[in-house]
């Protein structure tokens, strides 16, 4: 499905949160590519910086957050340099976002129609009936009857609301949709429905997706490639199926073990022992070393670099692989 042409190139992305007394480096030197038509997943424990990366890519980072380093290239253009109208066009015409909470992403007191039509009117020449027609098409596309266009958010179920958010994200035919835990707030059946719908839409419309979820099984099923983050750094990028079958980094392995197998008998899961480091007191050397069962003396004083292993079609940052 995905081609080899790169749509978005992220290089050494660094994002800080400015505190009153210290600066927290939530994301440091993260690099990865999103290819055209590809679903790229970001995995990792809570707090590792997935949302921070997602917001930075969409240029939605807000104070106290600040992108302090690196580059984001989109179709050859420098995204971090966008301002004014170019930035406005970038956001939503080229890249759109599905927020985590379907319940709160729509304004409860104005009709759903208005919340999709305003995006269409702001970015295209379409107004009035033309914009409305487009909104109706989008509703149909995500499986909601266009008769319900003028209903208010509370009249829809949680799953329908998230579909409306997806319709809003799709209405300008963007090249990339960033989905930060788009289904976490929904029940499992609805979750599956929606993911299947996104898969179908992606095949039909050919957009790329940056997908974040805590459900590793779902991610492996849906994504082409997955980047694994740990404590603000990227530790491994590999084809989705390799995350379980051929994990390279010890953290990826631990992450895989902490999830129930997709099929076969249920085995007792082992969680990952210990907890991620405090961002204000990062260990010297490899950040995962204190929790790593195989850590070498080297791991505790030198940080490993991200290295490509073409024969395994992956990249990883671990001394053990050298």
């Amino acid at each position: 499905m995905s081609s080899d042409r790169v749509l978005m190139k992220v290089r050494d992305l660094t994002v800080d949160y400015m505190g009153d007394f210290e600066v927290l480096r939530a994301v440091e030197n993260v690099s990865f590519d999103i290819r055209e038509g590809e679903a790229f997943g970001l995995a990792g424990e809570s707090g590792c910086g997935k949302s921070t990366v997602a917001f930075a890519l969409a240029r939605l980072t807000r104070l106290p957050g600040l992108v302090t380093g690196g580059a984001i290239e989109f179709g050859g253009e420098d995204v971090l340099g966008f301002t004014g109208d170019r930035l406005r066009a970038y956001r939503w015409r080229e890249v759109s976002f599905v927020f985590q909470s379907a319940m709160n992403a729509l304004n409860p007191v104005i009709p759903a129609s208005e919340q999709i039509i305003d995006a269409i009117e702001t970015h295209t020449g379409k107004t009035g009936d033309a914009a409305r027609k487009r909104a109706a098409e989008m509703f149909e596309l995500v499986g909601i009857h266009p008769d319900r266009l003028d209903d208010y958010p509370h009249q829809f179920s949680g799953g329908m609301r998230q579909r409306i958010c997806i319709a809003i994200a799709l209405c300008l035919n963007p090249k990339l949709i960033i989905m930060d835990e788009p289904t976490t707030a929904l029940d499992v059946v609805v979750q599956r429905d929606i993911i299947e719908q996104i898969v179908a839409l992606k095949a039909e419309l050919g957009f790329s997706v940056l997908f974040i979820t805590h459900d590793l099984g779902l991610m492996i099923e849906f994504c082409d490639r997955i980047g694994v983050m740990y404590a603000g750094e990227m530790v491994e990028i590999a084809p989705a199926e390799a995350i379980l079958t051929a994990p390279q980094h010890p953290y990826t392995r631990a992450l895989g073990r902490s999830f129930p197998p997709l099929s076969g008998p249920r085995v007792r899961m082992e969680g990952i022992a210990g907890s991620p480091p405090d961002l204000s007191e990062l260990p010297v050397g490899c950040r995962f070393a204190p929790r790593c069962g195989e850590a070498l003396p080297l791991c505790r004083h030198a940080a490993p670099a991200m290295i490509s292993y073409p024969e395994k079609r992956c990249q990883a940052a671990c001394h053990l692989l050298q």
């Binding site: 759109s96 927020f99 992403a105 919340q115 970015h123 958010c165």
Partner: peptide, 14 residues
Amino acid sequence: NEDFVALAKAKGLS
């Protein structure tokens, strides 16, 4: 701080 305001901003509305 509501998500719907964040979405409205992200949509590029005036």
